[in-house]
Design a protein around this nucleic acid. Structure first.
Length: 496
RNA sequence: GGUCCUGUGGCCGAGGGGCUAGGCAGAGGUCUGCAAAACCUUGUACAGCGGUUCGAAUCCGCUCGGGACCUCCA
Protein backbone atom coordinates (compact mmCIF):
# COMPACT_ATOMS: atom_id res chain seq x y z
CA UNK A 1 0.00 0.00 0.00
CA UNK A 2 1.49 3.30 -0.96
CA UNK A 3 2.61 5.36 1.92
CA UNK A 4 0.06 4.54 4.53
CA UNK A 5 -0.75 8.22 4.65
CA UNK A 6 -4.49 7.79 4.77
CA UNK A 7 -6.06 9.44 7.79
CA UNK A 8 -9.59 8.67 8.88
CA UNK A 9 -11.66 10.56 11.40
CA UNK A 10 -12.60 8.00 14.01
CA UNK A 11 -15.81 8.81 15.83
CA UNK A 12 -14.66 6.69 18.73
CA UNK A 13 -11.66 8.89 19.49
CA UNK A 14 -12.91 12.04 17.78
CA UNK A 15 -9.60 12.38 16.05
CA UNK A 16 -8.15 11.78 12.66
CA UNK A 17 -6.09 8.63 12.86
CA UNK A 18 -3.65 7.04 10.52
CA UNK A 19 -5.34 4.12 8.83
CA UNK A 20 -3.60 0.81 9.32
CA UNK A 21 -5.72 -2.24 8.56
CA UNK A 22 -5.55 -5.25 10.79
CA UNK A 23 -4.44 -7.64 8.04
CA UNK A 24 -3.06 -5.66 5.13
CA UNK A 25 -3.62 -5.70 2.24
CA UNK A 26 -7.11 -6.79 3.32
CA UNK A 27 -9.67 -4.36 4.68
CA UNK A 28 -12.96 -5.29 6.25
CA UNK A 29 -15.69 -2.68 6.08
CA UNK A 30 -19.27 -2.83 7.27
CA UNK A 31 -21.88 -0.18 6.53
CA UNK A 32 -25.44 -0.03 7.78
CA UNK A 33 -27.70 -0.29 4.78
CA UNK A 34 -31.33 0.60 4.41
CA UNK A 35 -34.44 -0.81 5.98
CA UNK A 36 -36.34 -1.59 2.82
CA UNK A 37 -39.94 -0.61 3.37
CA UNK A 38 -40.26 2.25 0.90
CA UNK A 39 -38.64 3.97 -2.06
CA UNK A 40 -35.09 5.13 -1.54
CA UNK A 41 -34.89 8.83 -0.79
CA UNK A 42 -32.22 11.49 -0.73
CA UNK A 43 -31.22 10.45 2.76
CA UNK A 44 -30.29 7.00 1.55
CA UNK A 45 -27.98 8.44 -1.06
CA UNK A 46 -25.69 10.15 1.41
CA UNK A 47 -24.24 7.19 3.31
CA UNK A 48 -24.28 5.11 0.14
CA UNK A 49 -22.17 7.68 -1.70
CA UNK A 50 -19.99 8.49 1.30
CA UNK A 51 -18.94 4.91 1.80
CA UNK A 52 -18.81 4.25 -1.91
CA UNK A 53 -16.03 6.84 -1.93
CA UNK A 54 -14.28 5.15 0.97
CA UNK A 55 -14.58 1.81 -0.81
CA UNK A 56 -13.39 3.21 -4.11
CA UNK A 57 -10.42 5.02 -2.64
CA UNK A 58 -9.28 1.98 -0.69
CA UNK A 59 -9.49 -0.04 -3.90
CA UNK A 60 -7.64 2.70 -5.75
CA UNK A 61 -4.87 2.50 -3.18
CA UNK A 62 -4.63 -1.20 -3.86
CA UNK A 63 -6.32 -2.65 -0.79
CA UNK A 64 -8.35 -5.82 -1.07
CA UNK A 65 -11.59 -4.69 0.46
CA UNK A 66 -14.45 -6.82 1.63
CA UNK A 67 -17.33 -4.39 1.80
CA UNK A 68 -20.42 -5.62 3.59
CA UNK A 69 -23.57 -3.53 3.46
CA UNK A 70 -26.67 -5.08 4.90
CA UNK A 71 -30.34 -4.90 4.05
CA UNK A 72 -32.59 -4.71 7.05
CA UNK A 73 -35.85 -6.50 6.39
CA UNK A 74 -36.97 -7.50 9.84
CA UNK A 75 -36.96 -6.26 13.39
CA UNK A 76 -36.84 -2.54 12.74
CA UNK A 77 -39.78 -1.27 14.72
CA UNK A 78 -41.53 2.00 14.32
CA UNK A 79 -39.76 3.56 17.22
CA UNK A 80 -36.52 2.77 18.85
CA UNK A 81 -37.98 2.09 22.26
CA UNK A 82 -38.63 -1.45 21.08
CA UNK A 83 -42.31 -0.75 20.76
CA UNK A 84 -44.62 -0.43 17.82
CA UNK A 85 -45.13 -2.37 14.66
CA UNK A 86 -42.41 -3.74 12.43
CA UNK A 87 -41.86 -1.24 9.63
CA UNK A 88 -41.74 -3.87 6.94
CA UNK A 89 -44.79 -5.72 8.17
CA UNK A 90 -46.84 -2.57 8.48
CA UNK A 91 -46.01 -1.40 4.97
CA UNK A 92 -46.66 -4.87 3.59
CA UNK A 93 -50.12 -4.77 5.10
CA UNK A 94 -50.78 -1.36 3.58
CA UNK A 95 -49.60 -2.46 0.15
CA UNK A 96 -51.33 -5.84 0.51
CA UNK A 97 -48.11 -7.72 -0.13
CA UNK A 98 -46.34 -10.56 1.57
CA UNK A 99 -43.57 -8.97 3.70
CA UNK A 100 -40.84 -10.61 1.69
CA UNK A 101 -42.54 -9.49 -1.49
CA UNK A 102 -42.36 -5.94 -0.23
CA UNK A 103 -38.74 -6.36 0.78
CA UNK A 104 -37.87 -7.66 -2.65
CA UNK A 105 -39.65 -4.81 -4.36
CA UNK A 106 -37.93 -2.08 -2.41
CA UNK A 107 -34.54 -3.76 -2.33
CA UNK A 108 -34.68 -3.82 -6.12
CA UNK A 109 -35.69 -0.21 -6.30
CA UNK A 110 -32.85 0.69 -3.94
CA UNK A 111 -30.40 -1.21 -6.12
CA UNK A 112 -31.66 0.50 -9.23
CA UNK A 113 -31.28 3.94 -7.68
CA UNK A 114 -27.82 3.17 -6.36
CA UNK A 115 -26.70 1.93 -9.75
CA UNK A 116 -27.92 5.19 -11.29
CA UNK A 117 -25.82 7.08 -8.76
CA UNK A 118 -22.89 4.91 -9.82
CA UNK A 119 -22.60 3.49 -6.32
CA UNK A 120 -20.64 0.27 -6.50
CA UNK A 121 -22.33 -2.85 -5.31
CA UNK A 122 -20.83 -4.09 -2.04
CA UNK A 123 -18.96 -7.38 -1.86
CA UNK A 124 -21.65 -8.95 0.27
CA UNK A 125 -25.16 -7.70 0.93
CA UNK A 126 -26.63 -9.84 3.68
CA UNK A 127 -30.29 -9.71 4.64
CA UNK A 128 -31.21 -9.72 8.31
CA UNK A 129 -33.92 -12.32 7.73
CA UNK A 130 -31.35 -14.60 6.16
CA UNK A 131 -29.25 -14.59 9.32
CA UNK A 132 -31.74 -15.44 12.03
CA UNK A 133 -29.61 -18.38 13.13
CA UNK A 134 -26.51 -16.25 13.55
CA UNK A 135 -28.50 -13.74 15.55
CA UNK A 136 -29.96 -16.40 17.82
CA UNK A 137 -26.51 -17.85 18.42
CA UNK A 138 -25.19 -14.46 19.36
CA UNK A 139 -28.05 -13.80 21.74
CA UNK A 140 -27.34 -17.16 23.36
CA UNK A 141 -23.78 -16.08 23.96
CA UNK A 142 -24.84 -12.78 25.46
CA UNK A 143 -27.17 -14.66 27.79
CA UNK A 144 -24.35 -17.06 28.73
CA UNK A 145 -22.18 -14.13 29.67
CA UNK A 146 -24.95 -12.76 31.81
CA UNK A 147 -25.57 -9.53 29.96
CA UNK A 148 -29.12 -10.29 28.95
CA UNK A 149 -32.27 -11.49 30.62
CA UNK A 150 -35.47 -13.16 29.58
CA UNK A 151 -38.75 -11.39 30.11
CA UNK A 152 -42.08 -12.75 28.88
CA UNK A 153 -40.42 -14.65 26.07
CA UNK A 154 -38.40 -11.65 24.94
CA UNK A 155 -34.70 -11.15 25.56
CA UNK A 156 -33.28 -7.81 26.59
CA UNK A 157 -29.75 -6.56 26.92
CA UNK A 158 -28.93 -5.59 30.50
CA UNK A 159 -27.22 -2.23 30.27
CA UNK A 160 -26.79 -1.72 34.00
CA UNK A 161 -25.05 -5.03 34.40
CA UNK A 162 -22.89 -4.44 31.36
CA UNK A 163 -21.86 -1.04 32.65
CA UNK A 164 -20.44 -2.54 35.82
CA UNK A 165 -17.56 -4.04 33.88
CA UNK A 166 -17.57 -2.14 30.59
CA UNK A 167 -17.98 1.34 29.28
CA UNK A 168 -21.19 2.10 27.49
CA UNK A 169 -21.77 5.32 25.64
CA UNK A 170 -18.24 6.14 24.61
CA UNK A 171 -19.02 6.28 20.93
CA UNK A 172 -21.90 8.70 21.22
CA UNK A 173 -20.37 10.59 24.13
CA UNK A 174 -23.29 10.23 26.43
CA UNK A 175 -23.91 8.51 29.72
CA UNK A 176 -26.96 6.47 30.46
CA UNK A 177 -27.98 8.67 33.36
CA UNK A 178 -28.57 11.50 30.92
CA UNK A 179 -30.51 9.22 28.68
CA UNK A 180 -32.50 7.89 31.59
CA UNK A 181 -33.72 11.27 32.68
CA UNK A 182 -34.52 12.22 29.11
CA UNK A 183 -36.34 9.08 28.08
CA UNK A 184 -40.01 9.51 28.30
CA UNK A 185 -41.79 6.79 30.18
CA UNK A 186 -43.81 4.61 27.91
CA UNK A 187 -46.69 2.45 28.91
CA UNK A 188 -46.02 -1.23 28.66
CA UNK A 189 -42.29 -1.01 29.18
CA UNK A 190 -42.52 -3.13 32.23
CA UNK A 191 -40.80 -5.99 30.39
CA UNK A 192 -37.53 -4.12 30.67
CA UNK A 193 -35.63 -3.71 33.89
CA UNK A 194 -34.40 -0.34 32.77
CA UNK A 195 -35.44 1.95 29.94
CA UNK A 196 -31.86 1.82 28.65
CA UNK A 197 -32.11 -1.87 27.97
CA UNK A 198 -32.80 -2.85 24.41
CA UNK A 199 -34.40 -5.84 22.76
CA UNK A 200 -32.31 -8.70 21.40
CA UNK A 201 -35.26 -10.94 20.70
CA UNK A 202 -38.93 -10.04 20.73
CA UNK A 203 -41.73 -12.48 21.26
CA UNK A 204 -44.19 -12.12 18.42
CA UNK A 205 -47.76 -11.24 19.12
CA UNK A 206 -50.29 -13.67 17.58
CA UNK A 207 -50.99 -11.43 14.58
CA UNK A 208 -47.31 -10.87 13.82
CA UNK A 209 -46.43 -12.64 10.57
CA UNK A 210 -42.65 -12.37 10.51
CA UNK A 211 -41.70 -14.93 13.13
CA UNK A 212 -39.09 -17.56 13.68
CA UNK A 213 -38.68 -20.23 16.34
CA UNK A 214 -36.07 -19.63 19.01
CA UNK A 215 -35.21 -21.09 22.40
CA UNK A 216 -37.22 -18.30 24.02
CA UNK A 217 -40.30 -17.83 21.87
CA UNK A 218 -41.61 -17.64 18.38
CA UNK A 219 -40.53 -14.17 17.51
CA UNK A 220 -38.07 -11.98 15.71
CA UNK A 221 -34.68 -10.40 16.37
CA UNK A 222 -34.20 -6.93 17.76
CA UNK A 223 -33.07 -4.20 15.45
CA UNK A 224 -29.43 -3.94 16.55
CA UNK A 225 -28.37 -7.56 16.71
CA UNK A 226 -28.42 -8.13 12.94
CA UNK A 227 -25.46 -5.85 12.31
CA UNK A 228 -23.40 -7.40 15.10
CA UNK A 229 -24.18 -10.92 13.92
CA UNK A 230 -23.65 -10.30 10.23
CA UNK A 231 -20.50 -8.22 10.57
CA UNK A 232 -18.99 -10.94 12.75
CA UNK A 233 -20.05 -13.64 10.33
CA UNK A 234 -18.43 -12.03 7.30
CA UNK A 235 -15.69 -9.84 8.73
CA UNK A 236 -14.72 -11.56 11.94
CA UNK A 237 -14.75 -10.56 15.56
CA UNK A 238 -12.68 -7.44 14.93
CA UNK A 239 -12.72 -5.57 11.66
CA UNK A 240 -11.41 -2.31 10.30
CA UNK A 241 -14.14 0.11 9.35
CA UNK A 242 -17.76 0.45 10.36
CA UNK A 243 -19.78 3.19 8.72
CA UNK A 244 -23.24 4.63 8.85
CA UNK A 245 -25.22 7.81 9.29
CA UNK A 246 -24.72 10.00 12.34
CA UNK A 247 -28.26 9.26 13.38
CA UNK A 248 -27.24 5.67 14.02
CA UNK A 249 -24.57 6.62 16.54
CA UNK A 250 -27.01 6.27 19.33
CA UNK A 251 -28.43 3.89 20.10
CA UNK A 252 -27.76 1.58 17.15
CA UNK A 253 -23.97 1.57 17.02
CA UNK A 254 -23.61 1.85 20.76
CA UNK A 255 -25.73 -1.27 21.05
CA UNK A 256 -23.66 -3.05 18.44
CA UNK A 257 -20.53 -2.54 20.51
CA UNK A 258 -22.26 -3.74 23.66
CA UNK A 259 -23.59 -6.84 21.89
CA UNK A 260 -20.28 -7.79 20.39
CA UNK A 261 -18.40 -7.27 23.61
CA UNK A 262 -21.20 -8.72 25.74
CA UNK A 263 -21.17 -11.94 23.76
CA UNK A 264 -17.62 -12.51 24.83
CA UNK A 265 -15.93 -10.74 21.98
CA UNK A 266 -13.59 -7.83 21.69
CA UNK A 267 -14.31 -4.26 20.71
CA UNK A 268 -15.48 -5.05 17.19
CA UNK A 269 -14.57 -1.95 15.23
CA UNK A 270 -11.26 -0.17 14.80
CA UNK A 271 -12.43 2.88 12.86
CA UNK A 272 -15.97 4.17 13.24
CA UNK A 273 -17.05 6.52 10.48
CA UNK A 274 -20.24 8.57 10.37
CA UNK A 275 -21.61 10.71 7.62
CA UNK A 276 -23.57 13.83 8.51
CA UNK A 277 -27.20 14.42 7.68
CA UNK A 278 -28.80 16.53 5.01
CA UNK A 279 -31.37 19.29 4.93
CA UNK A 280 -33.77 20.47 2.27
CA UNK A 281 -33.98 24.22 1.87
CA UNK A 282 -32.38 24.52 5.27
CA UNK A 283 -34.86 22.23 6.98
CA UNK A 284 -34.31 18.72 8.10
CA UNK A 285 -35.91 16.11 5.97
CA UNK A 286 -38.76 14.49 7.80
CA UNK A 287 -41.90 12.68 6.86
CA UNK A 288 -43.91 15.08 8.95
CA UNK A 289 -42.41 18.08 7.15
CA UNK A 290 -43.58 16.85 3.77
CA UNK A 291 -40.15 17.38 2.27
CA UNK A 292 -39.22 13.76 1.80
CA UNK A 293 -37.85 13.54 -1.70
CA UNK A 294 -37.36 10.12 -3.19
CA UNK A 295 -34.53 9.56 -5.63
CA UNK A 296 -36.95 8.70 -8.39
CA UNK A 297 -38.72 12.00 -7.84
CA UNK A 298 -35.41 13.82 -7.90
CA UNK A 299 -34.39 12.18 -11.16
CA UNK A 300 -37.71 13.00 -12.82
CA UNK A 301 -38.49 16.32 -11.17
CA UNK A 302 -41.75 14.98 -9.84
CA UNK A 303 -41.98 16.79 -6.52
CA UNK A 304 -43.54 20.17 -5.71
CA UNK A 305 -40.27 21.40 -4.23
CA UNK A 306 -38.30 20.67 -7.40
CA UNK A 307 -38.05 23.17 -10.22
CA UNK A 308 -36.73 20.52 -12.57
CA UNK A 309 -35.27 17.04 -12.75
CA UNK A 310 -31.72 16.52 -11.56
CA UNK A 311 -29.59 13.79 -12.99
CA UNK A 312 -28.04 11.16 -10.75
CA UNK A 313 -24.55 12.47 -11.49
CA UNK A 314 -25.60 15.97 -10.48
CA UNK A 315 -26.72 14.59 -7.14
CA UNK A 316 -23.54 12.60 -6.74
CA UNK A 317 -21.33 15.52 -7.71
CA UNK A 318 -23.19 17.88 -5.42
CA UNK A 319 -22.75 15.56 -2.47
CA UNK A 320 -19.04 15.24 -3.20
CA UNK A 321 -18.67 19.02 -3.26
CA UNK A 322 -19.26 18.98 0.47
CA UNK A 323 -17.34 16.99 3.02
CA UNK A 324 -19.13 13.92 4.33
CA UNK A 325 -18.87 14.98 7.97
CA UNK A 326 -20.65 18.28 7.37
CA UNK A 327 -24.35 18.73 6.89
CA UNK A 328 -25.39 19.38 3.32
CA UNK A 329 -28.34 21.46 2.20
CA UNK A 330 -30.32 20.66 -0.92
CA UNK A 331 -31.97 23.43 -2.84
CA UNK A 332 -32.82 24.07 -6.45
CA UNK A 333 -30.22 26.78 -6.84
CA UNK A 334 -27.48 24.69 -5.26
CA UNK A 335 -28.26 21.75 -7.53
CA UNK A 336 -28.42 23.93 -10.60
CA UNK A 337 -25.03 25.40 -9.76
CA UNK A 338 -23.68 21.91 -9.34
CA UNK A 339 -25.18 20.87 -12.65
CA UNK A 340 -23.31 23.62 -14.45
CA UNK A 341 -20.08 22.95 -12.62
CA UNK A 342 -20.27 19.26 -13.43
CA UNK A 343 -20.98 19.98 -17.08
CA UNK A 344 -17.82 22.06 -17.22
CA UNK A 345 -15.77 19.42 -15.49
CA UNK A 346 -17.08 16.53 -17.53
CA UNK A 347 -16.54 18.29 -20.84
CA UNK A 348 -12.93 18.84 -19.84
CA UNK A 349 -12.78 15.17 -18.91
CA UNK A 350 -14.12 14.11 -22.29
CA UNK A 351 -11.75 16.46 -24.04
CA UNK A 352 -8.84 15.00 -22.15
CA UNK A 353 -9.77 11.49 -23.32
CA UNK A 354 -9.66 12.60 -26.94
CA UNK A 355 -6.49 14.68 -26.86
CA UNK A 356 -3.52 13.36 -28.79
CA UNK A 357 -0.14 14.36 -27.54
CA UNK A 358 2.10 16.15 -30.01
CA UNK A 359 5.75 16.88 -29.80
CA UNK A 360 6.08 20.35 -28.35
CA UNK A 361 8.62 22.99 -29.35
CA UNK A 362 9.89 22.87 -25.83
CA UNK A 363 8.94 21.76 -22.40
CA UNK A 364 7.38 24.28 -20.09
CA UNK A 365 8.34 23.28 -16.60
CA UNK A 366 5.61 25.34 -15.07
CA UNK A 367 2.91 23.36 -16.84
CA UNK A 368 4.56 20.03 -16.17
CA UNK A 369 4.80 20.93 -12.50
CA UNK A 370 1.15 21.84 -12.43
CA UNK A 371 0.16 18.53 -13.96
CA UNK A 372 2.44 16.63 -11.65
CA UNK A 373 1.17 18.43 -8.57
CA UNK A 374 -2.38 17.58 -9.51
CA UNK A 375 -1.96 13.96 -8.51
CA UNK A 376 -0.27 14.90 -5.27
CA UNK A 377 -3.03 17.32 -4.41
CA UNK A 378 -5.71 14.75 -5.08
CA UNK A 379 -3.98 12.15 -3.00
CA UNK A 380 -3.31 14.56 -0.14
CA UNK A 381 -6.96 15.55 -0.17
CA UNK A 382 -8.25 11.99 -0.17
CA UNK A 383 -5.72 10.97 2.46
CA UNK A 384 -7.10 13.72 4.65
CA UNK A 385 -10.28 11.92 5.64
CA UNK A 386 -11.65 11.59 2.11
CA UNK A 387 -11.79 15.28 1.34
CA UNK A 388 -13.59 15.11 -1.99
CA UNK A 389 -14.26 18.88 -2.22
CA UNK A 390 -10.54 19.45 -2.37
CA UNK A 391 -10.15 16.85 -5.09
CA UNK A 392 -12.80 18.62 -7.11
CA UNK A 393 -11.08 21.96 -6.55
CA UNK A 394 -7.82 20.47 -7.77
CA UNK A 395 -9.60 19.27 -10.89
CA UNK A 396 -10.98 22.68 -11.66
CA UNK A 397 -7.51 24.06 -11.22
CA UNK A 398 -6.18 21.99 -14.10
CA UNK A 399 -9.01 22.11 -16.59
CA UNK A 400 -7.63 25.39 -17.86
CA UNK A 401 -4.49 23.53 -18.89
CA UNK A 402 -6.57 20.84 -20.58
CA UNK A 403 -8.49 23.44 -22.54
CA UNK A 404 -5.25 25.13 -23.52
CA UNK A 405 -4.05 21.88 -25.06
CA UNK A 406 -7.07 22.00 -27.27
CA UNK A 407 -7.06 25.71 -28.00
CA UNK A 408 -3.35 26.33 -28.26
CA UNK A 409 -2.10 22.85 -29.00
CA UNK A 410 0.94 21.30 -27.44
CA UNK A 411 3.37 23.84 -28.86
CA UNK A 412 4.21 25.30 -25.52
CA UNK A 413 3.54 21.97 -24.01
CA UNK A 414 4.66 19.09 -21.97
CA UNK A 415 6.54 15.88 -22.44
CA UNK A 416 4.65 12.79 -23.41
CA UNK A 417 5.28 10.99 -20.17
CA UNK A 418 4.10 13.92 -18.08
CA UNK A 419 0.99 14.23 -20.20
CA UNK A 420 0.10 10.56 -20.15
CA UNK A 421 0.67 10.34 -16.43
CA UNK A 422 -1.58 13.29 -15.91
CA UNK A 423 -4.27 11.87 -18.13
CA UNK A 424 -4.15 8.61 -16.23
CA UNK A 425 -4.31 10.34 -12.86
CA UNK A 426 -7.13 12.67 -13.81
CA UNK A 427 -9.13 9.85 -15.31
CA UNK A 428 -8.48 7.72 -12.25
CA UNK A 429 -9.73 10.30 -9.82
CA UNK A 430 -12.65 11.32 -11.98
CA UNK A 431 -13.97 7.89 -12.84
CA UNK A 432 -12.60 5.48 -10.29
CA UNK A 433 -12.26 7.46 -7.08
CA UNK A 434 -15.06 9.99 -7.37
CA UNK A 435 -17.08 7.60 -9.48
CA UNK A 436 -18.26 10.24 -11.91
CA UNK A 437 -19.42 9.22 -15.33
CA UNK A 438 -20.49 11.14 -18.33
CA UNK A 439 -24.17 11.18 -18.87
CA UNK A 440 -25.18 10.83 -22.44
CA UNK A 441 -28.83 11.57 -22.84
CA UNK A 442 -29.99 8.64 -24.82
CA UNK A 443 -33.05 10.44 -26.01
CA UNK A 444 -36.51 9.05 -26.26
CA UNK A 445 -35.46 6.73 -29.04
CA UNK A 446 -34.20 6.75 -32.58
CA UNK A 447 -37.27 8.32 -34.07
CA UNK A 448 -37.09 11.28 -31.76
CA UNK A 449 -33.44 11.83 -32.62
CA UNK A 450 -34.18 11.66 -36.32
CA UNK A 451 -36.92 14.20 -35.92
CA UNK A 452 -34.64 16.54 -34.02
CA UNK A 453 -31.94 16.14 -36.64
CA UNK A 454 -34.44 17.00 -39.35
CA UNK A 455 -35.51 20.14 -37.52
CA UNK A 456 -31.94 21.21 -36.88
CA UNK A 457 -31.19 20.76 -40.56
CA UNK A 458 -34.21 22.81 -41.52
CA UNK A 459 -32.85 25.63 -39.40
CA UNK A 460 -29.46 25.33 -41.10
CA UNK A 461 -31.18 25.75 -44.42
CA UNK A 462 -32.96 28.83 -43.20
CA UNK A 463 -29.66 30.24 -41.97
CA UNK A 464 -28.05 29.65 -45.35
CA UNK A 465 -30.90 31.50 -46.96
CA UNK A 466 -30.35 34.31 -44.42
CA UNK A 467 -33.87 33.81 -43.17
CA UNK A 468 -32.82 34.47 -39.61
CA UNK A 469 -36.35 35.12 -38.50
CA UNK A 470 -37.29 31.56 -39.37
CA UNK A 471 -34.00 30.22 -37.99
CA UNK A 472 -34.64 31.87 -34.64
CA UNK A 473 -38.20 30.64 -34.55
CA UNK A 474 -37.05 27.09 -35.15
CA UNK A 475 -34.44 27.45 -32.47
CA UNK A 476 -37.03 28.62 -29.98
CA UNK A 477 -38.96 25.44 -30.58
CA UNK A 478 -35.87 23.30 -30.15
CA UNK A 479 -34.91 25.03 -26.93
CA UNK A 480 -37.93 23.50 -25.30
CA UNK A 481 -36.31 20.11 -25.67
CA UNK A 482 -32.70 20.89 -25.04
CA UNK A 483 -29.70 23.05 -25.76
CA UNK A 484 -28.66 24.15 -29.20
CA UNK A 485 -25.20 25.44 -29.95
CA UNK A 486 -23.79 26.67 -33.20
CA UNK A 487 -20.20 25.55 -33.38
CA UNK A 488 -17.60 25.77 -36.13
CA UNK A 489 -18.32 22.10 -36.83
CA UNK A 490 -22.00 22.77 -37.21
CA UNK A 491 -24.96 22.83 -34.84
CA UNK A 492 -24.97 20.56 -31.82
CA UNK A 493 -28.15 19.65 -30.08
CA UNK A 494 -28.13 18.26 -26.58
CA UNK A 495 -31.35 16.91 -25.22
CA UNK A 496 -32.51 18.05 -21.79
C1' G B 1 -32.87 19.98 29.02
C1' G B 2 -28.54 16.44 27.60
C1' U B 3 -24.61 15.48 23.83
C1' C B 4 -22.15 17.41 19.76
C1' C B 5 -21.24 20.35 15.43
C1' U B 6 -21.10 25.11 13.29
C1' G B 7 -21.00 30.79 11.82
C1' U B 8 -15.98 32.14 5.56
C1' G B 9 -17.07 37.10 -0.07
C1' G B 10 -24.04 38.15 -3.63
C1' C B 11 -24.94 32.47 -3.02
C1' C B 12 -22.80 27.46 -2.15
C1' G B 13 -18.53 25.50 -0.02
C1' A B 14 -13.01 23.72 1.41
C1' G B 15 -9.11 25.15 4.60
C1' G B 16 -7.87 25.92 9.78
C1' G B 17 -1.52 30.28 13.55
C1' G B 18 2.39 33.41 8.53
C1' C B 19 1.79 30.31 2.03
C1' U B 20 -4.17 31.27 -4.57
C1' A B 21 -9.18 26.71 -2.33
C1' G B 22 -12.93 25.72 -5.82
C1' G B 23 -17.87 26.29 -7.93
C1' C B 24 -22.21 29.41 -9.19
C1' A B 25 -23.57 34.35 -10.01
C1' G B 26 -21.35 39.40 -11.45
C1' A B 27 -17.74 42.28 -14.62
C1' G B 28 -14.43 42.49 -18.98
C1' G B 29 -12.79 39.83 -23.36
C1' U B 30 -12.42 35.96 -27.73
C1' C B 31 -15.86 33.75 -31.17
C1' U B 32 -20.68 34.92 -33.63
C1' G B 33 -25.99 37.43 -38.44
C1' C B 34 -27.99 37.76 -33.41
C1' A B 35 -27.94 34.66 -29.45
C1' A B 36 -26.57 30.58 -26.63
C1' A B 37 -22.67 27.63 -25.39
C1' A B 38 -17.57 27.22 -24.89
C1' C B 39 -12.98 29.32 -23.59
C1' C B 40 -9.74 33.35 -21.33
C1' U B 41 -9.17 37.31 -17.48
C1' U B 42 -11.10 39.24 -12.90
C1' G B 43 -12.87 42.05 -7.75
C1' U B 44 -15.06 41.28 -2.97
C1' A B 45 -14.10 36.99 3.08
C1' C B 46 -13.40 34.74 7.40
C1' A B 47 -20.33 36.73 13.20
C1' G B 48 -19.06 40.33 17.48
C1' C B 49 -15.93 41.51 21.71
C1' G B 50 -11.76 40.30 24.60
C1' G B 51 -7.23 37.26 25.27
C1' U B 52 -2.63 34.16 23.85
C1' U B 53 1.27 35.18 20.05
C1' C B 54 6.43 38.43 16.62
C1' G B 55 1.92 37.22 13.82
C1' A B 56 -5.19 34.78 14.33
C1' A B 57 -10.11 33.69 9.65
C1' U B 58 -7.32 29.62 12.06
C1' C B 59 -5.91 28.66 19.27
C1' C B 60 -8.61 30.18 24.18
C1' G B 61 -12.82 32.76 26.71
C1' C B 62 -17.37 35.25 26.56
C1' U B 63 -21.66 37.13 23.66
C1' C B 64 -24.99 36.55 19.71
C1' G B 65 -26.75 33.39 15.62
C1' G B 66 -27.52 28.51 12.91
C1' G B 67 -27.87 23.21 12.89
C1' A B 68 -27.84 17.90 14.19
C1' C B 69 -28.86 13.69 17.34
C1' C B 70 -31.65 12.10 21.83
C1' U B 71 -39.07 11.38 18.28
C1' C B 72 -40.82 10.07 12.80
C1' C B 73 -36.18 9.60 9.74
C1' A B 74 -30.43 7.79 6.60
Amino acid sequence: MPGNKLNIYNTLTRKKENFAPLHPPFVGMYVCGPTVYGDAHLGHARPAITFDIVYRYLLYLGYKVRYVRNITDVGHLENDADEGEDKVEKKARLEKLEPMELVHKYAESYHRNMAMLNVKSPSIEPFASGHIIEQIEMIKKILEHGYAYLSNGSVYFDIDKYKKSHTYGQLSGRNTEDVLTQTRELEGQSEKKSPNDFALWKKASPEHIMRWPSPWSDGFPGWHIECSAMSRRYLGEVFDIHGGGMDLLFPHHECEIAQSVGSGGKEPVRYWMHNNMLTINGQKMGKSLNNFITLDALFTGAHPLLEKAYSPMTIRFYMLQGHYRNPIDFSNSALQDAEKALAKLSSAFLLLQELKWEKPDGIVNEIEMKLENFGKECQAAMDDDFNTPRVIAAMFNVIGVVNDFKNKGFKQGVGQEAFENFRKTFTGYYSEVLGLKTEISAGAGGQFNELITAIVQAREKAKLEKDFKLADAVRNVLLQFGELKDTPQGPVFKQK
